[in-house]
Design a protein around this nucleic acid. Structure first.
Lengths: 328, 328
DNA sequence: GTGAAAGCGCTAACAA
DNA sequence: TTGTTAGCGCTTTCAC
């Protein structure tokens, strides 16, 4: 492996001269040596050793991204946004999928800590004590989407007003004529925003949420299936709002299996607007979250904080109700 | 930040003693000092600095994964498999999405080179000269799925016999009664395996591939749309095999827009069996590739090579035809 | 304009 | 059974 020392020898200059040139501290370097060194760098295909540099300057130009489940199409889209922003700044992205397992989450924290990543993007936190420790070590962190309890912490946040979004889409069902609306969501929603949005909408119509009509699981297709079975086995509904698109997919599938038509018998809505939502049957009425943009913004904020000390702030991105055919 | 030196001082031992204990070279260490040191490590929440260690031992315990498009649900599944295997061995994964852009691919290569990753997993290669350079630097590489030309190179490969798979699924259409079968695929298929499989099946029935009936684009929904428009604008087909599921999604959508029914008028098949394939309308008949397993196997082979010098070999994983309703 | 030297945090030979 | 030391490849201060 070729090192800076080799370059220096070949060029007949000192190590530090090469370093200065490569880092753009060439104010006091003669044009002659500069071109000579650069020439040799090109010839030899030399690439600086980022780990040596990282050790010296205490910065690795690397950020970590911890997510609960990369099978959920919402997250790859965020990852793509993060990647794009990271690439612009020459940062690398190390990816950790916790598979919704607190043990693996802890392992990811430790891994990233030992790797000395310069910052962290999180989408969900199972272990708040671990998070606290990272924050107190002054590791820049920005949280995307699945909000964590961040009061009093110096943390960036990319949020979408999911409560209002859920309220709006529930109102849509109400306006269309549904009067018994069920809810299937997940346990881990911060401040239960989605559920509360659902309740808000009902309240707006003088209705009250019926515990019989709600079910909590995880953000998976499976939860959609089991949720519908649980609810429709002992009661009935003519509307169903789901915590994300995957749940809606499972729910619609199960409703069909029960001989119910969507939207004729039951109007169903999703949340996220994953790429394939429009190709489902029926095409899904859902809330569009700007996943790519969320990732891009998060990484940009984080890296600007690392590089220039820009503040970590809260960034509220817009959502949009996408009307398709599952809730006509 | 707390270092090994701090631990050593607190424990009243030398740096190297701590190092030995932490690395399991404790054969000659007394039980007393061992427990004392470990105790302090626990108390202080000390985590070794992997970048310093990496510089010293010339190994970073990191692998890179370069993929063309993480929006394609096939790849997150591979990534999940890689992650799982990496986690088992304590390796980190740095993710690079090239967005099918040769410039970004080159940038990814350079980034990973400078980061000194111990190995690389690739799914597609645009720039073979860059790849050659990496191989000649003896960086362990394993290629998944999208095969690259690897003759004479010491490279691991996780493959699926896509040619036979495509032959089998095309035969299925033939057996069902389709006689004019079109093909929509991508340019970048190695050795044109999918297309050749399609031709093999036709040949088995004494048929010959008609250039009018084939279209090439990229592995995206968009290609499905444009492919169908291109083919059906000047001719007709009663069967359509697609290079992957996304193409099939777009194709089916466009066929519907043209007033054609699937499968009654045109039988359609996909390739990959992405998670949502069964939930599409109609549910997609497709080839199942074991994406998670492919990722897991790739990472495992790569890391075993890095750690123990195990050979990089070619691993042929099975496929399965999944019959659903798009090709009844 | 350029170079010498210290040191980032760690490992591993070697010495004791 | 434990400690000393050199050095991984780089940046940066300070001296020339």
């Amino acid at each position: 492996m070729i090192t800076m020392k080799d370059i220096a020898e070949k060029a007949g200059v000192s190590l530090s001269t090469v370093s200065k040139i490569l880092n753009g501290n060439d104010r006091y370097i003669s044009e002659a040596t500069r071109t000579k060194v650069l020439q040799i760098v090109k010839e030899t295909n030399y690439v600086p050793n980022a780990v040596a540099r990282g050790l010296k300057v205490q910065r690795t130009n690397t950020i970590g991204f911890i997510l609960p489940d990369i099978s959920n199409p919402f997250f790859p889209e965020i990852a793509r946004g993060i990647e794009a922003a990271a690439e612009v700044h020459g940062f690398a992205l190390v990816l950790c999928d916790t598979d919704n397992d607190p043990k693996r989450e802890q392992a990811s924290f430790n891994l990233l800590k030992s790797k000395k990543v310069d910052g962290l993007i999180l989408t969900r936190v199972l272990q708040h004590s671990a998070l606290n420790e990272l924050v107190s070590r002054r590791l820049p962190i920005v949280v995307v989407d699945r909000r964590v309890n961040t009061t009093g912490r110096d943390i960036g946040r990319i949020i979408v007003d999911t409560r209002s979004a859920m309220r709006d889409i529930t109102k849509l069902l109400l306006a269309r004529g549904s009067s018994r609306i069920a809810f299937i969501g997940a346990q881990d929603d911060f401040e239960d925003a989605r559920y509360n949005g659902y309740c808000d909408a009902l309240a707006g119509y003088g209705l009250k949420a019926d515990p019989m009509l709600s079910y909590r699981g995880t953000y998976t297709v499976e939860t959609g299936h089991t949720g519908v079975r649980a609810i429709f086995s002992h009661t009935f509904a003519d509307g169903l709002v789901c915590g994300n698109d995957l749940i809606a997919v499972g729910a619609i599938n199960e409703l069909k299996a029960l001989g119910l038509r969507v939207p004729e018998d039951v109007r169903v809505t999703g949340f996220d607007d994953i790429y394939l939502a429009r190709y489902l049957s029926p095409p899904l009425t859902t809330v569009q979250q700007p996943a790519y943009e969320m990732g891009r913004t998060a990484a940009d904020m984080l890296i600007r904080n690392i590089l220039f000390g820009d503040a970590l702030c809260t960034n509220n991105l817009g959502y949009k109700i996408i009307e398709r055919e599952s809730a006509l």
